[in-house]
Amino acid sequence: MNVLLVEDDKRVGDFIVTELTAVGHSCVHELDGAAGLRAAQNATFDVMVIDRMMPRMDGLALINALREAGNNTPVVILSALGEVDDRVQGLHCGADDYLVKPFAMAELLARLEVLHRRVSAVVGESQTTLVVADLSMDLLRQHVQRQTTTVTLQPREYKLLEYLMRHAGQVVTRAMLLEQVWGYHFDPQTNVIDVHVSRLRQKIDKDFDHALLSTVRGKGYRLGPQLDD
């Protein structure tokens, strides 16, 4: 994944670059809005991470300029401005996701990967069956089965599983699930999501010898065959 990062705080920027490089992505880091715009115009990126309050060109102005120039690369805004208004403003001007500082790197990474996958898998939107290992979901009949056993799910559990299956193999954070499956952007005081996930796990993993839905410590959840580590 080829990422453009526009962030005026050098230490935060360096940290993101290090973390992204560590998991095998390439990352170009620019320190102000104008330089960011130039970089975006001169090369093609898969995803962009843009700060809001920056010298020389504000993040929103930068996104506006990109969108007006026909550049539709997915953008995640990374900003300390975290009020509802700020968020709405950011998404309204053409950003695809909004992450408030302070952020966990796992959260940013998960969101970047989901955005990247969404763009590269647009063709797959029309598919009628989702398959992850021996788990399959028929989207037309709303039918889920693992191996030959039918799994009966509540409507929300179904949506939760669908989202996890669409992002199989990727880490999905709790905040992402709240936003995407429940449709609310809020800050739960307790980990309500964990209970839902463990219920789902009961249904899809309990009677089988290898688990598909795993908890990634300090990050979130991941659906897919167990990694070896």
Binding site: V12, F15, E19, M53, L81, G82, K101, P102, F103, M105
Partner: peptide, 21 residues
């Protein structure tokens, strides 16, 4: 409050990220 957000939360974020590394 914006300034506090920007000036104080950012170093805290850095600290958290350094710790996570």
């Amino acid at each position: 409050s914006d300034n506090i957000a920007h000036d104080l939360r950012t170093p805290l974020t850095r600290m958290r990220n350094d710790l996570s590394q």
